[in-house]
Design a binder for these strands. Structure first.
Lengths: 243, 243
DNA sequence: ATGAAGAAGTGGTTGGTACCAGTGAACCAG
DNA sequence: CTGGTTCACTGGTACCAACCACTTCTTCAT
């Protein structure tokens, strides 16, 4: 291990994280702690620090007396409550976010979209379909609808370099005031299952989000299909009183 | 520090957590790590382990070269998330809510429960299993765990007439200060599918809830399995500012 | 006075050692 | 074959020592 830059245990985290995501599979066993000390010539303290971080990040789980294993559920129970930005969240977990744009097309709002977006029937809207990945693993499929009237001349080029919210704010001066999300469990259908590289019939979390600007215009309506084994939604209530 | 039961660093966590919540204020400075080693006669390693846990839990923050301080545990003031009340929601939809108690039994906390409820291994707890229905249709299966110590002598009779939170408040004077919920999608297993009268393999929403009283004791831990086709969870974010 | 150097405090990193506590396989006595 | 013991492995806990990096205050020379 190099002696420069980052602390040793951080280097070890990166190294192991790479090994885990690239070369190993869920429930594979990692070398024992004592083994790792020999391999990388660091103390067991350092190894354990690195493993603790990986455990916290959800990459591994440990079993007393048995060993350390690659975890299946990589998603951390991260607070989606404050801000929802896929990229930020993934980066906060030390993962490399990536977005693949499948297409951006213009169409006329059908009934259900017009209703949800508070637009007249047939109003021009953009449909943006994206796949969100972390460390190269596809985690969710997103279908986003945007009123052409609010985002005239939107192109794929704008979206490849920056996040949707960045484009909204910087290119169109649209600020987000409120976001409403609805979650429900479902089953991944064939096509999306293929895109997410999971068997059809796997559980998923469907997320429906509409975003409103200060003038109460709905500026975005998104339907997401998230891998059920990878997403947890956490909420904290303070001063609750319920049945 | 006593030499029994829990590991030293866990004992230290509890001790400090108590001190922090009871006697200290946000941004107060804690004694230095080296100071704590002397005070409690443990090694610095142990002190650091305890502090790391407290940091992770959000009780403290550390500043290199300056010290360790009590965190402001208000966290997200923008938490306008709707509280979830089964009965209220059902009534709002004009449906008749109903709860069937399957059983109430006492058992000793296994590992995972002890961990989630912050209890010693083997501590006596009640397990309450209920089915929630609307208009006679079963919608969710709930497994609730309650510390016997906090709810001594709990009986089915108490729960048949009133809601769990009503019993907590009225019969035991336990007030709820905070609730943390985690949602994730899953597949209903055979037995629960039968109870919910849906085919096995149907989608469900798994909900994990732990409730805390003002003294930071976990007074309830509930695992729910909800019919995916019947439950939607809605969240409203205000003033989102993201990338 | 003023600014640089240093001391002393803080948390952060890394090394080492020892022992405890689960796990599972090998082994042996019945 | 069965059941218990032992042993070699695993991760978990706990101790110690040393040094680094950052902050703050003191001290001293200019």
């Amino acid at each position: 291990m190099s002696t420069y830059e980052q602390p040793l245990h951080e280097q070890l985290v990166e190294l192991l994280r790479h090994k885990i995501t690239q070369e190993m599979h869920p429930h594979d066993r990692l070398p024992s702690e004592r083994m790792l000390t020999q391999t990388y010539q660091v103390s067991r303290n350092t190894v354990r620090m690195a493993l603790s971080e990986l455990e916290m990040m959800g990459y591994i789980y440990r079993q007393h007396g048995k060993g350390t294993f690659v975890a299946n559920r990589v998603a951390n129970p991260t607070n989606l409550t404050t801000t929802y930005s896929f990229s930020d969240q993934m980066r906060a977990e030390g993962r490399h976010p990536e977005t693949r744009i499948l297409y951006l097309q213009q169409l006329e709002a059908p009934k259900f979209l017009a209703a949800h977006m508070n637009l007249p029937l047939g109003a021009p809207i953009f449909k943006l379909k994206r796949i969100r990945c972390a460390d190269g693993v596809p985690l969710m499929v997103e279908r986003t609808f945007l009123p052409v009237r609010i985002f005239p001349g939107l192109t794929v080029a704008q979206l490849t370099d920056h996040s949707l919210y960045h484009v909204m704010a910087e290119d169109y001066g649209v600020k987000v005031a409120e976001a409403n999300e609805a979650f429900y469990a479902g089953i991944i259908n064939g096509k999306d299952a293929q895109r997410l590289t999971v068997p059809a019939g796997s559980p998923c979390l469907n997320v429906q989000r509409s975003t409103t600007d200060p003038q109460e215009r709905i500026v975005e309506y998104t339907l997401s299909v998230c891998r059920g084994d990878q997403f947890v939604y956490q909420v904290r209530h303070v001063n609750v009183a319920q049945s």
